[in-house]
Amino acid sequence: MPSLSPLVAVVEDNPGLLADLVEFLQMRGFTARGFASAEEFLSAWPAQRFDLLLLDVGLPGIGGLEVAQRVRARESVGILMLTAFDSNDDHVLGLDAGADVFLSKRSSLEVIEAACHSVLRRLEPRHGSNDAAIAANNGTWLLHVKQWRLTAPDGTALELTHAEVGLLAALFACPGQAIERNALLKSLGKADTLSNLRNLDNTASRLRRKVQTACGIDLPVRPSYGKGYTFIGPCEVMA
């Protein structure tokens, strides 16, 4: 990712806030482009690629969560979501949709700027590293927990959501062994409820689609019917 003038898409339906965010980010050295709706953004993307997406959750029409899911399924890009709501459920939904950071709209512009830099720094390590060589040499899937990144055996790096990192970390800890769904939920700090079980299954399905779309390789996570999930390939958790 370029270290100078990162390209930021700001998607916000409030005209005043949109103008403020775009102007502030440009003043701070970003190249920012504003979009008044999800539909307007999606008409420009993916032909126009962005380093970072600053996304309002409560958009009219296509919502911010759906936009995050669409973008995350296609490419590795930083996603920072803004919301007028502060409930924990909203934060969980945002993170599961693919957001790197979830902030209140009451956050100062300086805090938003700091979060943008933090996300961009998190994405940078995949460039210039030897992950591709390591993975390609031994066919190993590499999980970088702190950087929320998965490197496939062909060297493709994928940015992960919080839920995806947690799921893979639990499976990588016991490769070849079936991990029960309630144990996976416990490792994620979530209660064993029907809703959370459904979200877990959705996370696993979305992750497999993401990997297949990004590099054409099947992620070796297999459902163990009546039990949970098993990671059946070579894998390693990186520091």
Rank of each mutant, 00 (worst) to 15 (best):
P2K: 13
P2M: 12
P6D: 12
P6V: 07
L7F: 07
A9S: 14
E12R: 09
D13W: 04
D13F: 06
G16S: 10
L18F: 06
F24I: 13
F24P: 02
F24W: 14
F30C: 03
A32N: 00
A36Q: 15
A38P: 14
S43G: 09
R49V: 11
D51Y: 12
G58P: 04
P60C: 04
I62N: 08
G63K: 01
L65C: 13
L65W: 14
L65M: 12
E66L: 11
A68T: 03
A73Y: 00
R74I: 15
R74M: 08
S76I: 10
I79A: 01
L82W: 09
T83D: 11
F85L: 13
D86T: 15
D86C: 12
N88G: 14
H91P: 00
V92I: 15
L93I: 07
G94L: 09
L95Y: 08
A97Y: 01
A99T: 11
V111M: 12
L123T: 00
G139I: 06
W141C: 05
W141L: 01
L142P: 03
L143M: 05
K146E: 09
Q147M: 06
D154T: 03
D154A: 01
A157H: 10
E159R: 07
T161E: 02
E164L: 06
L167F: 01
L171K: 02
L184E: 04
K186Q: 14
G189M: 12
G189T: 00
L194M: 12
L197D: 05
N199M: 01
N202G: 02
Q212H: 05
T213R: 13
A214Y: 07
R222S: 10
S224L: 11
Y229N: 01
E236M: 13
E236G: 07
V237G: 10
